[in-house]
Simulated scan of single mutants.
Amino acid sequence: MNAEELLDLARKQHAQIVTAESCTGGLIAGALTDVPGSSDVVDRGFVTYSNRSKKQMLGVMSSTLMRYGAVSEQVAQEMADGALLRSDASLAIAVTGIAGPGGSDNKPEGRVCFGLAFTGRNTFTETVEFGAIGRAQVRQATVEHALKLLTEALSTT
């Protein structure tokens, strides 16, 4: 499903969407707002590239960052929950990952953690290993997967 179809589905359910993005730097919000008329569904987007911004803007706890690192499902969950709390939206998607180049044995290039918070439901998290396919490709794959997760969340209500 593309962004336009996702937005139509959100409209039908009277859902508003917020994004909390690290490794994509706003590309998910960009994909959604590329669609004319999306302002009735897209509430806002947070680009929280630094750990400081994750804490200041989304309420990610320092202890979580220290214990698990920025690229973790725990941080993705706190990002999604924080975005939902700090917006008028009912559905939040959060991403944090290593687009590359670089990474480590413990956190390889292409690893992206997703958080999906929907009012009235438990926050869903998952990690996807896109692999060392290149920075632009990891970021694009992340956007596509985020749109898929949002669509699935709206389709199960």
Rank of each mutant, 00 (worst) to 15 (best):
E21F: 00
E21C: 00
E21V: 01
S22I: 04
S22F: 02
C23W: 04
C23Y: 04
T24D: 00
L27N: 06
I28Q: 00
G30D: 06
G30I: 01
A31F: 02
L32A: 03
D34V: 14
P36F: 11
G37L: 14
G37C: 12
S38V: 13
V41E: 01
V41Y: 03
V41R: 05
V42F: 04
V42L: 06
G45D: 02
F46I: 00
F46K: 00
V47W: 03
V47H: 03
T48P: 05
Y49G: 04
Y49R: 01
S50P: 14
N51E: 12
N51R: 09
N51G: 12
N51I: 08
R52N: 15
S53M: 15
K55Q: 10
K55W: 04
M57P: 03
L58D: 13
L58C: 12
G59V: 05
G59I: 03
M61H: 12
M61E: 12
M61F: 15
S62C: 09
S63T: 09
S63L: 15
T64A: 14
T64R: 04
T64E: 06
L65Y: 04
M66I: 10
M66C: 11
R67H: 08
R67F: 02
Y68D: 08
Y68K: 04
Y68S: 10
G69R: 08
G69D: 15
A70M: 14
A70D: 11
A70P: 08
V71N: 13
S72M: 07
S72I: 04
S72G: 07
E73P: 05
E73K: 07
E73Q: 13
E73N: 08
E73L: 10
V75H: 03
A76G: 05
A76K: 00
Q77S: 13
E78M: 08
E78S: 03
A80K: 00
A80S: 04
G82K: 05
G82N: 05
